[in-house]
Structures are given as structure tokens and as C-alpha cells.
Design a protein around this nucleic acid. Structure first.
Lengths: 336, 336
DNA sequence: GTGAAAGCGCTAACAC
DNA sequence: GTGTTAGCGCTTTCAC
């Protein structure tokens, strides 16, 4: 059993109030008493109970985070910068990795409420009716990071996914490509699904390029589905000379598929990804990608959330960060 | 402000005791009262305070986890299986990503103690004197996952790193290689530093192969250092025909370096990694690796920890899991 | 079956 | 400057 404040008080020969005062760095405690108390704390190895403190202060310093897949480099990186910002502000993170399991998310949101977390960060946008209602009912500040769900009331920290996809596609067009394959995300996702798809389409049509239905495929953002969808694209009679995948993971899958079919990236097919994750530098050729400011995204998410937690003011709207195309080796001009 | 048990009691027209009984699924509550209570709970959106419960039950259902680098695929994967096991047993995870910052670890261990976490999982072995003393003083069950620190009192879930490295090296020898480069870890680390190094050396000497000093390099397990160390190995007059890197990340760095110097893997140099992380399947050529049972490792760590938490029995010793060589494309027999 | 009240470990009035 | 005490939201004897 851990020592309590009472034990410290007894050993130091003072009241619990005095101990509490020392603990909380208040003045109005004589130096010699303060010294005695610290000695007692040291001797007992006492650490004040955060539980008891939370109860009386009505403050837990806990933030709940829901990650769709922690083994993905993109989410892991956001999470690490969220953790960094939390720690710097003396908040602690309760982490839930839902791995596509909606029930688990529901369960965890309940846990968050029971734990009285002061804020919640969610990194996916597959929010169903039930979850949406629960979130609203909980009345705990929530910020979405890297995604924007349907509900307009939710605040997000994102890039302009439409524009970013538009720019990525335009880059390929400017390299001379016209048959541009697209490996999209889940069309139930607004940001990563729909918006990126629209960006791709509009970039093509605005340059007067005809959209080829067979060049459009959809995956689940993971390496394997990038591979599988690329396989389909290679089957099309009019093979694309470039491919835009809406996640770096899928882009890597696509590159591997191309290579496994004895074609070369970028000589035969250029590939551009999306996210700017660590993977971009690991592959050979290195992967050209539409970079999201991942680190900043995590940091800003936490900043917005903590501001709301501590002031009660809701953010006035989404925070849209700048995307940036980072050209590497996987895209070259179309061969004449 | 969240509703309290008192509010529920008032609305349902019963005592708080009755509400508590319904909450905890006790019998001895008439059905109609139970119904009334549930209605009130629903109406108020009441969720019992985990804080208050923890205080009275003296049980937090919290596990603290210290990860050296959450953006590494290896740790992220262990973490995700730890999270899975925790969630299945109704425990929640407080996650700390220390990223080489020992002060942060010290701070977090204190937080864990204040939070009254019931158990701690640590995934690195750079435990200094101060941290070691703190851990012992805290009297909270601790299990090390994937590493074994100096202190014999600590319990670990690991593979036999010496044997695994021995086997990896032997595999290369059996493929006909004799000039085998080694990219090791931090020699202050027992398991991933020293043991793997010894395994490498002893495999060579037991086959009567002379150890070439210039073929031995040490990195920090990350991709970049694999790249940097490989660069040095390529400078050596007697260039190795195969390389064993003690992490998949470093192996990938080495492969990239080899390729960037216009040599081929595996035709010019074979590469074997260590960990069996997701990266092994992403690279081209795919990476032969000494696989640790990552998922099982996380699961077993949690099992051991929860057993200790719930019974008070300390594990009788380390749990050593089986390693397994997974041959992929990055290693071939030495050219004659 | 149900309720009153003590107490979990701490903080913060309030008194001295 | 220091101590006494009520109370944070819940569970759990112990009465009824």
C-alpha cells in the first residue's frame, strides 16, 4: 500500500494541510517545516495520489486519443507529436487503437467519459450516427486531426485535401502525363475519400483531359490495397503512365506491384503518394508525395484542444494547414 | 458539469445505494426500481466517475507503457498488441513516448506512480541507476518487453537474442558467405547490443571464420544509421559479401545505401535484418529477417503483467519466445 | 430489498 | 503561518 499524505504529516510532525501546502508550492510555510516535510516525503517515497487530487480539483489532466491504426507511420507520427505537446503541458494521454472496430470506439468513448478526460482527439472520420450523438452528449471538447467528418459542428485540423489532390494531379499533368491512374480511399470518408477524388477529377477536366473510368480505383489506404488496385490498373488496355495514390502506403504498394510486373518506376509509370510519411525516403526510387505537415498537425491539434479545455472557448473553425509537394525520384516527365 | 450518482438517485426516486447496486449489477434490486434507475441514467447521460470509483476501490485499471520510439514499426506493432490485450481485459493504457529523453522517462515514472497505475511495461533497456532505484522504490509490477536490462530482478519477455543473432549469421555462412559485415546496436544495451553482437562473433568463430575488425560497425537501430554504417562498410578494402543488421530499419538503410552506390542486393551483397517488422515485405527486394514474434510478445507481456497485478505473484523468470528466420529475397548464396 | 452514513486521499475554506 | 474540517463522487458495511 502506498503512503498517504497523513503518513507524511505524522512523520514530519505537522498537519496534512501543511504537507499539502508544501506539495503545491504555496508560500506561508516556514522553511524548517518545509524541509521536514520534504524529508518525510523522501523517506516514505510518497507520491500524491492523482486520483484523489482529480476528485477534489475536478481536473484530471487526461486527454483521450482515438487512432485508427497505430502501426501506420502517418498516425504514429501524429501521435508522437501529440504526445510531445501533451507532455510539455502536463497532460497525459489515454490511447485507443481502434483498428476499424467501431464497437471498440464506442466502448472507449464511454471509458473516456468515465475517466473524465478533459479533451478528445479523433483521427478518423468514419463517425456513425450513434457515435456522433454520443460525442455531442458527452460535452467534452473534441478535435479531429487530419480528417473532417460529416458533421459541421466538429472542428478539424487538416490540409485542404481537395486542393492538395488537385495539385498532385496537376503536377503529373505538367510532367506531360494524360493517362493518370487514381487509387483513392474510402468514398465514405469526406476528406481522404471524396475530397481527394474530386481534386483528381477536377484537375484533369480543368486541363481538358478526359477521365477514363477504368483508371479509377479505390482502396483502404494500406500497402496491400495499393498493390491490389495497381494490379487492376495494369490490366487496363490503355495503361496509365502515371498513378496518384491518396496515401503513401498505397503508393508504395503500387510501386511494388509495378516492379513485380517487371515494369519500372518511374521510367514506365510515375507514382505520386500522399501524406509525406517516413516511407517516402525509405523506398527506392524515393517517393514523390503530397506532404501534409504531420508534425505541425499533431502540435496544432493539441494546441487548439488545450486552448478550448483551459478557456472554454470553442475554436472558431477548422484549422487548415499548408500542404506541400515534395518531388523525389518516383515521378518523371512522360516519355514522348 | 457531469451528472453524479446523486442526480440519478433523485430523478429515479431511490437512494444512491440502489443506484450503485444497479450500476454494479448486484441482485437484490427489484426489477421496477432497476428499470427506473436505468431510465434516469439514460435521461441524464450519466457515466459513473472512474476517478471516484478508483479512490474507493483502490483500483485504477491503468497500465503505464514506456515506448522508446512510437514511430518505429517494431514498437508500434508491439504497442498495438499490448493495447489489444489491455482493452480485452478492461485495462487502459497511459502511453509515454520517451524518444531517447531520459528525463522524460523519469518524469513519466513519477506520473505513473501518482496515477497509481497497476502495472508498467517498458520497452527499452537504457535503465540508469536513478531509474532503477525509482522503479524498485515504486513497488509497482514492471515487465520489460523485447529487452532485458542489466538488473537481474527485472522480468522480461524476449527472444534469445544471442541465439537469434547466431542463427542469422549461420544462415549467411551456410549460403557460402565468409566476409560478413555486421551492423550492431548500442553496446550499452544487453539484449539488442551485446547479445546480438556475441551471437554474430560466435557463429563466425565456431565455423572457423576469421573476424575482420573493419566489418563490424554499430548504429542506433534506425534507418539512417544503417545507411551511414553501410557506407563505411563499402569503404573497406575487403568488401563484405553479406551484411547482418540487428534491426530491420538498419537493414533497409543498408540496402538503400548499397543500391545508391550502384551495387545490387542480393547479387552483390546479401542483407539480413532482425525483428520481422512490416518493413520486410515493403522493400524490393523483400528483406530476409530474423523474426521476433512481435504480436505474441506484446500479448504475452500483458498476460504476465496482468497475472502479477491480479494475483500478486511475481513471474518466476523471463519468458523467452521463439525466433524464426524468414527467408525472403535479400539473401542468396555467395557467387563463386 | 433498501437506505443512512462512513470513508477512500486529497484540497481549500475557515478558524486560530 | 498552521491546523481543523467539510466535501469531491463513489462503494460498502450495517441497520432496518
Amino acid at each position: 500500500m502506498q503512503p498517504k499524505i497523513k503518513d507524511v504529516a505524522r512523520l514530519a510532525g505537522v498537519s496534512v494541510t501543511t504537507v499539502s501546502r508544501v506539495l503545491n508550492g504555496e508560500k506561508y510555510v516556514k522553511d524548517d517545516l518545509k524541509h521536514k516535510v520534504n524529508l518525510a516525503i523522501e523517506e516514505l517515497g510518497y507520491a500524491p495520489s492523482h486520483i484523489a487530487r482529480s476528485l477534489v480539483r475536478n481536473k484530471t489532466n487526461l486527454i483521450g486519443v482515438i487512432v485508427p491504426d497505430i502501426t501506420s507511420s502517418f498516425y504514429a507520427t501524429i501521435l508522437s507529436s501529440i504526445e510531445e505537446a501533451a507532455s510539455a503541458n502536463d497532460y497525459n494521454l489515454l490511447v485507443c487503437n481502434i483498428s476499424e472496430d467501431i464497437d471498440k470506439e464506442y466502448k472507449y468513448l464511454n471509458v473516456f467519459q468515465e475517466m473524465r478526460v478533459e479533451g478528445i482527439i479523433i483521427m478518423h472520420e468514419k463517425i456513425n450516427e450513434e457515435i456522433r450523438n454520443l460525442i455531442h452528449k458527452m460535452k467534452i471538447p473534441v478535435i479531429f486531426s487530419s480528417v473532417k467528418p460529416m458533421d459541421q459542428q466538429f472542428v478539424s485540423v487538416i490540409v485542404d485535401d481537395y486542393k492538395a489532390a488537385y495539385d498532385a494531379t496537376t503536377y503529373l499533368i505538367e510532367l506531360g502525363h494524360e493517362e493518370i491512374g487514381f487509387i483513392g480511399g474510402d468514398m465514405r470518408d469526406i476528406t481522404s475519400g471524396q475530397n481527394r477524388y474530386s481534386g483528381y477529377r477536377n484537375a484533369l477536366t480543368s486541363k481538358g483531359i478526359r477521365i477514363i473510368h477504368e483508371h479509377i480505383r479505390f482502396g483502404d489506404y494500406k500497402v496491400k490495397s495499393g498493390y491490389a488496385q495497381m494490379k487492376e490498373l495494369l490490366r487496363v488496355s490503355q495503361r496509365p503512365t502515371a498513378v496518384f495514390a491518396v496515401s503513401d502506403d498505397m503508393a508504395v504498394g503500387a510501386m511494388n506491384c509495378i516492379r513485380d510486373h517487371n515494369l519500372r518506376v518511374p521510367e514506365d509509370i510515375s507514382v505520386i503518394g500522399f501524406d509525406g510519411s517516413q516511407l517516402t525516403e525509405l523506398t527506392r526510387p524515393t517517393l514523390t508525395s503530397m506532404e501534409q505537415p504531420i508534425h505541425e498537425m499533431g502540435k496544432e491539434t493539441m494546441r487548439l484542444l488545450l486552448h478550448q479545455v483551459e478557456t472554454g472557448e470553442e475554436p472558431s473553425g477548422d484549422l487548415v494547414l499548408d500542404h506541400r509537394l515534395v518531388a523525389r525520384e518516383s515521378c518523371i516527365p512522360r516519355k514522348k
